[in-house]
Design a protein around this nucleic acid. Structure first.
Lengths: 160, 160
DNA sequence: ACACGCATGTTATATAGTAACATCAAGCGC
DNA sequence: GCGCTTGATGTTACTATATAACATGCGTGT
């Protein structure tokens, strides 16, 4: 987000009402299927991520956590984020120090993002890792996870 | 670097003596060619990165900055790192909050790394961005920079 | 000399993340 | 039910990472 940009933050509109409840229920279901528990703080953090219009910083989550404006303690949120990342419900965007809910439920555990430097939108996409994997294999590396983050301008911000 | 790992840190041996001087001179030359100045703090930070055996944290650089053990002030080092990144002399590895000198002098401004979770080595390679660029283009994004970080085990640590 | 632009020095503060330990709650063998 | 184990949470304190804001210095062109 640079100073010259006048566009809105975030590409996604955030979930509300029925759509939000559906997404949370789906997460509950997936947890139940894998013997994990979507406990209250975990569910609350996921809810905040799903409602948001774009990537959220950890301390945004901490501030917004309490229903009545009381912040959470940092470990509460960081633990919830760890859990959500382990289960594939959320991703950390390294180059922003921020978090987003996974928009590609379940399909693979490597995240890739297109990040708009102007409006802050972060769009997740399914990376084609063929070339990177080949490079790793050529050097004898056993790769367990890949993060790919492309910075640039989204269509809207190129026009404006 | 996990607790079970007994291997040495870093894949590179770090530059010393003549090789180090050559690398610094090359950087001076490239700066002169582009009307930039490799000033003392910038040169010192680059030197520390080149000497190192692996990725260095900003506060490692801050601590090591002074020739006699006196630390630098944080802005001194962060500003130097900004400069070195702008000029392509160094890269930040987002998933480590750490910095390395560029090992692929000048060839493009997109960094890609193979990072060993066991020994901490970070090997730079030339990414094949074809697929990512295509994905971006399909969504109308204008991409200016890409970071690709693959975590896993290097050949040595797979054996050990 | 003088002003301009850029780099640096300095102080203070903001932001991000974790260690360590106490407490709580669910499942399980008996 | 009882007590044990395991995993999650609550709480305090702290470490690590990074930047804002403003003063000072330094080279360059006129």
């Amino acid at each position: 987000m640079n100073a010259a940009c006048h566009h809105e933050d975030g590409a996604h509109h955030g979930l509300h009402g029925q759509a939000l409840r559906l997404a949370l229920t789906a997460a509950e279901t997936r947890c139940a299927a894998s013997q994990e528990r979507l406990t209250l703080p975990r569910r609350r953090v996921l809810e905040l991520l799903l409602e948001a219009h774009g990537p959220l910083k950890a301390y945004d989550l901490i501030a917004a956590f309490g229903s009545g404006g009381e912040p959470a303690k940092p470990p509460t949120v960081y633990r919830a984020l760890d859990f959500l990342e382990r289960q594939g419900f959320a991703h950390r965007i390294e180059s922003l120090n921020a978090y987003v809910p996974c928009r590609l439920d379940g399909r693979g555990h490597s995240a890739a993002f297109l990040i708009c430097d102007c409006c802050g939108a972060a769009e997740e996409f399914e990376p084609d890792l063929g070339a990177g994997i080949a490079a790793a294999a050529a050097r004898g590396y056993a790769v367990s996870a890949v993060t790919l983050e492309a910075r640039g301008l989204c269509p809207v911000c190129q026009v404006g």
